[in-house]
Amino acid sequence: MSDKFFPVICRPSPVTALMRKLFDVARRGALLLLVVWTVVSLVTLLIELVPGDPAVATLGEQATAEQIEQFRERHGLNRPAFFVTYARDEQGERHLRWHGADNRYVDYWRGILHGDMGTSFRTDRPVLELITQRYPATIELAIAALIVAVAIAVPLGVVAGTHRGTWLDNLLSVVALIGISLPGFVLGPMLIYIFAVRLGWLAPSGRFEPSDIMLPAVTLGAALSALLTRMVRSSVIEELNEDYVRTARAKGLSERTVVYKHVLKNGLIPVVTILGLQLGVLLAGAIVTEKIFNWPGLGLLLIDDGIGKRDYRLVQGCVLVISITYILANTLTDTLYRRLDPRIRVS
């Protein structure tokens, strides 16, 4: 409805509208911080639950008492873990002790606020440095997978939607279902078998040639493309029933123009949301894909260098960075979605 029918009085004043918007932004920001705080706290507490001494685990059983003491000193392991501890004293009795802000949990937060995520147990290099080295590879993979998914899903979804109910539609539905159910760690090695072992066209793993990204991107993008195909299909079917499609047809536009210029433009709105929500899933799925293809991203850093070598400071950092990226991707999509669809903006 246009402004003509709604006098200015009925609409919220610009000040109210701005206030509302600011409030909304603040609410989102607060939630974001809350999530990050929860995640970091949870991971930090989990580390304390690890049985055994990280110093011994890192340095080995043969390490001297002096080496262990040095290690504990360097990584702050000799300091209390939390505000309250319930440790044994020399007599073997447990005491509840209050340490105030002088503890490792606060230290970690203080470090993060200064852009310092601690030092890796194994390599003695800053965790932030290790992560920033690997981060681009993960983003590269996620974007490549997104492109693969869209390139497969849009044409297939449009074909399925415009041929609704035919054998072609049914066939595409079955293919999409198989794609959704085939996990990356099944598809990935199968692709390696076909394209690296049998045909010898591509390298089985690593990130050296530009072509090395193809297999991981397809592996990561396959499940998403299957999901997207279904979304595009139902979206196209829904839009084809709209009045504007009849108008466009009546004024003599070709079916091609109707579908690609009019229907697709409107039909892609819900698809974009799914895409954004899936960007997070892609980042999580990238952990497995990177492991399969030895792709040197954050996931491989987390699994091989972090968990594999029991480098807990690194695990902490990886989990933090992956979850922040995930949350930001979701927030970004949400904002994009609101911009694309005016109906949502109004309500």
């Binding site: 997070g280 899933v281 699994i303």
Partner: peptide, 13 residues
């Protein structure tokens, strides 16, 4: 919080 966070990552951690 639980929905804003990839479940697999939490399970891995």
């Amino acid at each position: 919080v639980f929905l804003a966070f990839p479940g697999l990552l939490l399970a891995i951690a």
